[in-house]
């Protein structure tokens, strides 16, 4: 294993971990908001994929990565708007609709991509990086930690803002009420429906942004089905984080490292088949669930549509 522990290997592992962690961090933070408000958002995989496709398309056509991110956010929100309408307004089963939206987004993006690009997979130019002066030149960690696209730093900032929102503001408390005891919130004069719709839309925006990052920065191109379960991993992160954004970040980094081992081991010339390495993140999720699954805490009213006056 000594041959593996070279600077190049560690640096590419760390870089890969961060690049792979950002989409699932964004998805996990988004899912956390929905779950807090009482909506189990299984459609997040579809929202990511739609964000990846629209985000890529916009970036490709406008040559602007920022417009691409905006497109990704809108793409994710288009899917989450359907979820908000069907699951919050009409109170339909969140799991059935969630699966439907994921399947639908998979099919739709693959179909649109086929008619747009046929069998070609055009690439975006390499993204701009922002170097933090002085720190980027550090060995191993320098370019991997401090030479990232600005969206990475924005994601971290977003995590801090969310942590403050949940702990320090009325809105955070109200959100929790919507997930734990919606009838109490209703009696107190809050609108459960409106809060949940807002939470689901936020989830779509975050998942869409995560998808756009995956396509525009992570891969530099769009491939059908490219999210490959990243959204589902985001759901696990949100479940295990017990409502705290910091834990979503920690989890995302761990799974990001597992994901990036694939590329890093290939860089190091390992001959372990990729299928085995690709199992790592999912195996890591199962291991975490076996060890800590009992401690996952979910809001009491999660997955249950709120209907005023119902038992």
């Amino acid at each position: 294993m000594d041959a593996l522990l070279t600077d190049a290997f560690l640096s590419s592992l760390l870089t890969g971990a961060i690049v792979a962690a950002i989409p699932i961090l964004l998805a996990g933070l988004g899912e956390q908001m929905s779950e807090k408000a009482g909506v189990l958002n299984i459609g997040i995989e579809g929202m990511m994929l739609m964000g990846a496709y629209i985000g890529f398309l916009v970036a490709f056509e406008t040559h602007s990565i920022w417009l691409g991110f905006l497109g990704g956010i809108l793409g994710g929100m288009m899917v989450s708007a359907i979820m908000a309408f069907l699951c919050v307004r009409l109170g339909l089963n969140q799991i059935v609709i969630g699966i439907g939206l994921t399947i639908g987004a998979e099919g739709l993006t693959a179909l649109l991509h086929h008619f747009q690009f046929s069998r070609t997979y055009p690439r975006l130019p390499a993204p701009v990086r922002v170097d933090v002066p002085g720190l980027t030149d550090l060995p191993v960690i320098g370019s991997s930690l401090f030479g990232r696209h600005p969206i990475v730093y924005l994601a971290l900032l977003g995590m801090i803002v969310l942590a403050l929102l949940y702990r320090r503001t009325n809105l955070g408390m109200t959100l929790r009420a919507a997930g734990e005891k919606p009838s109490a919130l209703d009696v107190a004069g809050g609108s459960v429906g409106r809060l949940r719709v807002a939470a689901v839309m936020f989830t779509g925006a975050m998942a869409g942004l995560g998808g756009a990052y995956l396509a525009n920065i992570g891969a530099g191109l769009f491939l059908p089905f490219m999210t490959g379960g990243a959204g589902f991993i985001g759901i696990v992160l949100a479940m295990l984080a017990r409502g705290r954004p910091l834990w979503v970040l920690i989890g995302a980094l761990i799974f990001g490292a597992a994901l990036s081992l694939t590329t890093a081991l290939q860089v190091a010339g390992s001959n372990i088949p990729t299928d085995v390495i690709q199992m790592l993140p999912f195996a890591a999720v199962m291991l975490v669930l076996v060890l800590f699954g009992r401690r996952a805490k979910l809001p009491a009213a999660l997955g249950i549509a709120y209907e005023r006056g119902a038992r």
């Binding site: 339909l92 609709i97 439907g100 639908g104 099919g107 739709l108 086929h114």
Partner: peptide, 23 residues
């Protein structure tokens, strides 16, 4: 020349319309 992925769209529409019918 319509990719088979179209069946995914059809199945997803079915799930959603099913939910609406139920409602």
């Amino acid at each position: 020349g319509v990719p088979q992925d179209f069946t995914l769209v059809l199945v997803a529409s079915l799930l959603i319309c099913l939910g609406l019918g139920e409602y």
